[in-house]
Simulated scan of single mutants.
Amino acid sequence: MELRHLRYFRVVAEELNLTRAARRLHMSQPPLTRQINQLEEEVGAKLFSRSTRGMTLTPAGQFFLEHTLQILEKLDTAVAGTRRLARHHRELFGIGFVPSVFYGQLPLLVRQLRQKDDIELTLAELTTVQQVQALKAGRIDIGFGRLRIDDPEVVQQVLFDEPMIVAMPTGHPLEGTRPTLAELAEYPHVLFPAAPRPSLADIVLGMYRRRGLKIEVVQEANELQTTLGLIASGFGITLVPEQVRRLQRDGVTYTDLADRHITIPILCSRRRNEAPGPIMQEANAILEVMVENRRSGRYP
Rank of each mutant, 00 (worst) to 15 (best):
L3C: 02
Y8R: 10
V11E: 08
E15R: 15
N17K: 07
N17E: 08
R24W: 06
R24D: 06
H26T: 05
Q35C: 04
I36M: 14
Q38Y: 06
E40I: 11
V43L: 03
V43P: 01
G44F: 06
A45M: 14
A45V: 09
P59M: 11
F63T: 12
T68S: 12
I71R: 11
K74V: 01
L75K: 13
V79P: 03
R83Q: 12
G94W: 00
G104I: 05
Q105V: 11
L106C: 02
V110R: 07
R111W: 04
Q112V: 02
Q112W: 03
K116V: 06
T127A: 14
T128C: 09
Q133E: 11
A134F: 08
G138P: 02
G143A: 05
F144C: 05
I149N: 00
D150M: 05
E153V: 07
P163E: 10
I165S: 12
V166Q: 03
P169Y: 10
L181V: 04
E183D: 09
A185S: 14
Y187I: 05
L191Y: 08
L191R: 12
A194E: 12
P196H: 04
D202S: 09
I203R: 07
Y208L: 05
K214V: 10
I215W: 01
V218E: 10
A221F: 03
A221C: 10
N222K: 11
E223C: 01
Q225F: 05
L228V: 00
L230W: 08
A232Y: 12
G234Y: 07
F235H: 15
G236P: 07
I237L: 13
L239T: 12
Q243R: 15
V252I: 09
V252R: 12
A258S: 10
I262Q: 15
P265T: 04
L267D: 03
R272P: 01
E274H: 14
A285W: 03
N293C: 13
R294M: 14
R298A: 11
